[in-house]
């Protein structure tokens, strides 16, 4: 690849400057994470006598234990544990259903020929950019009508439906590039549209499935607003419970406990990020250039 002068060909001063900039930036990016990590294992006495950036005099996992099982969200003092469980129960089915519906719709759209196709793509594309605020209240009313507002089914339903334009477009853009011969051959064999989708198309879609699953997992796990409004008190996700612990007005938890709780909420998506590395990057790069 013929590219800009790489580091080896640059003047020495420039190379030093470049690395200095990169290292300072890296520190800026790492700072909040390191501060949270260090203080989550620091005894409260250290925080009172010093500041967040001093190193702990001893390492204690007591804040983690409290954050996990006895920090208070309002009147209830059972830590962030129920939130983690709720988030898993919400995220896993919502991701599976989003991926399947997105793939089915995306495949159908890619197969579907119509002179309105371009207009309908615009119709979906705009859906990507609609601020939730312009849909929230009517959605509350529709879900109340269906009897699933503030329920477990309701929050999953909302995640799937609100994610639909996004998942569908990602799959559609992938399937447009899949040779039509594959579907045609299956149809010749007498397979129905659904049959073709299930046994021929899905198995060759592993890459895009992983990308969409990662995007949806991060998005749904990190969601706050929809969980707050649609989940109901028994299913509040971890993000909502975390803010409840931190902002608890009656005897707020100590900073080290808050930080341990914040880390617990961040760990699942960080694991997905580190494990899936390249897929995550590809996901945001494809997801970014929507349409």
């Amino acid at each position: 690849m013929s590219s800009p002068a790489n580091a080896a060909a640059m003047p020495r001063v420039a190379v030093v400057g470049m690395y200095a900039f990169l290292i300072v930036s890296a520190l800026f990016f790492l700072a909040p994470f390191l501060v949270i990590l260090i203080n989550s294992v620091k005894p409260m006495a250290d925080i009172r006598s010093g500041n967040l950036l001093t190193l702990p005099s001893e390492i204690t996992f007591e804040p983690w234990r409290i954050a996990w099982s006895s920090a208070c969200t309002g009147l209830d003092c059972s830590g962030i544990k129920p939130g983690l469980w709720n988030s898993i129960l919400i995220t896993v089915p919502a991701v599976v259903i989003s991926v399947l519906t997105g793939a089915l719709n995306g495949y159908a759209l890619a197969q579907w020929r119509s002179r309105f196709a371009d207009w309908l793509m615009l119709f979906i594309l705009i859906g990507l950019f609609v601020p939730y605020q312009a849909m929230l209240y009517p959605t509350v009313k529709i879900l109340s009508g269906m009897g699933i507002f503030r329920s477990y089914t309701g929050i999953i339903f909302v995640h799937v439906v609100y994610g639909l334009p996004y998942t569908t477009l990602l799959f559609r853009n992938f399937y447009v590039g899949v040779p039509d011969e594959i579907s045609r051959a299956a149809r010749m064999e007498g397979a129905s549209f659904l049959r073709t989708f299930w046994s021929v198309i899905l198995p060759i879609s592993t890459n895009i499935i992983v990308v969409v699953a990662i995007l949806q997992f991060t998005g749904i796990w990190n969601d706050y607003l929809l969980g707050l409004i649609f989940a109901g008190n028994d299913n509040l996700p971890m993000t909502v419970q975390l803010t409840n612990i931190v902002n608890n007005s009656r005897g707020a938890a100590e900073p080290n406990v808050n930080m341990a709780a914040a880390l617990l909420a961040a760990i699942p998506t960080l694991i997905v990020y580190f494990v899936s590395g390249r897929y995550f990057v590809r996901g945001i790069a494809t997801g970014a250039v929507k349409g």
Partner: peptide
């Protein structure tokens, strides 16, 4: 470097906001 510059995208805005709130808190940060 890439890993470091990209990891914030995996973290929720809630945790991001709390982290910076603590870091910029005048009495603590």
């Amino acid at each position: 470097f890439r890993t470091i510059f990209l990891y914030p995208l995996a973290i929720s805005l809630i945790v991001t906001g709390l982290g910076w709130r603590w870091l910029l808190d005048p009495t603590l940060g």
